[in-house]
């Protein structure tokens, strides 16, 4: 009898066990969930809480191009909560730039982003910064590669150099004499562009003659003076090409004052704001540039991310900038923009 009772009890237990599983409104059948992960965090990219001190060193603080770049840099700094120090020599002077970098090293910034006036002279001071644990990148104008982690470039040098030559040739009708106003003969980026200008010239435009390459030290007054000199010296001068932002406005001013507007063509790298008046009265035909604001913004964004531990990657999409390209340790922001009298009003830099 006892055995029967046990048997009945066993049945009862089995029945209970069968009915049991259904307690509660949900019963998991299958789960693919791994350990709980917050993948949704990547959708709303909240900036990492850490704040950095980022020093942006331009070629010259008084050059409008760099002032616009500073605007963009500050915009990014405000978004990340970083302190952006914008300090540099007054004009494109390497010695002064070194002193300022020394000063910034003493202030223990987290990162130095330098637009180098001289690719070689700056190397020792940047090495020193690196030894003190300060990250070093370059933007706008590069140094020797070992001195920095990566270089934020605006455009492909070849593309820009060939394009500048093309705009000169186009406005001059592919024949005649022209001169080039460059910034500093030491600046690496200007020399690189200059090299490609020459390549394009020799390759496609045999009827054009390059008279002179004149340095302006990124000083607008000096550019103006040099342009006047060239106009006086070469009566057959048909074109002036500036490959640093102070060149074309100075040249255009000289051309206008010489009453040669439209006869001597002025093209080159410069800010639309500086060029707007000359473009309108045909003292200049075309300006080419990129957005320095965007460059400043991108530099700080990449600097911040680098401090967070992420290096820029090819094809990376940067908010409010677009996709960037990375070639070795060189970041390329995008393509150059051309400004004519038709579109120059659209741009504010």
């Amino acid at each position: 009898m006892f055995r029967r009772m046990v048997l009945l009890l066993a049945f009862f237990v089995i029945l209970c066990a069968c009915g049991n599983g259904k307690s509660g409104p949900y019963e998991v059948v299958f789960s693919m969930d791994g350990p709980p992960n917050s993948e949704s965090a990547s959708i709303t990219a909240v900036p990492a809480g850490k704040r950095y001190t980022i020093a942006i060193v331009p070629k010259g603080v008084e050059i409008p191009y760099f002032q616009y770049a500073a605007e963009g840099a500050r915009e990014a700094g405000a978004e990340f909560g970083d302190e952006v120090i914008f300090e540099g020599p007054r004009n494109a002077d390497a010695e002064e730039q070194i002193r300022i970098i020394e000063d910034l090293i003493d202030r223990k910034v987290d990162l130095l982003a330098v637009s180098a006036n001289d690719p070689d002279k700056l190397v020792p001071v940047l090495r020193k910064a690196k030894q003190q644990g300060i990250r070093v990148i370059t933007w706008d104008a590069d140094t020797e590669p070992p001195a920095r982690e990566f270089f934020v470039n605006m455009v492909e040098p070849e593309t820009l150099g060939r394009h500048l030559m093309d705009t000169m040739a186009m406005s001059m009708g592919e024949s005649g004499e022209f001169a080039i106003l460059t910034g500093s003969l030491a600046a690496a980026n200007l020399n690189e562009w200059l090299r490609w200008i020459r390549v394009q010239h020799e390759e496609f435009y045999p009827n054009m003659k390059l008279l002179e390459v004149v340095p302006t030290d990124d000083d607008q007054n000096k550019a103006y003076e040099e342009a006047r000199r060239l106009l006086a010296e070469y009566p057959n001068l048909k074109g002036l090409l500036g490959n640093s932002s102070v060149g074309p406005p100075g040249a255009a001013k000289a051309v206008r004052e010489a009453g040669k507007a439209g006869r001597v063509k002025v093209v080159g790298l410069s800010n639309p704001n500086l060029m707007a008046e000359y473009l309108r009265d045909d003292s200049a035909q075309m300006a080419t540039l990129w957005s320095p604001k965007k460059l400043g913004y991108l530099t700080v964004v990449l600097a911040h991310r680098y401090l967070d531990g992420a290096k820029p990657a090819d094809g990376q999409e940067i908010d409010k900038v677009g996709s960037i390209r990375v070639n070795g340790d060189m970041v390329i922001m995008g393509e150059p923009l051309d400004f004519t009298k038709d579109n120059v009003d659209q741009y504010d830099f």
């Binding site: 409104p25 949900y26 019963e27 998991v28 059948v29 299958f30 789960s31 693919m32």
Partner: peptide
């Protein structure tokens, strides 16, 4: 109240057993 975000479960909500 969903017990999983990736998977299947039996729900008695609404009075009807649903997968």
């Amino acid at each position: 109240h969903y017990p999983v975000k990736n998977g299947s479960f039996r729900s008695m909500a609404g009075g009807e057993s649903r997968l």
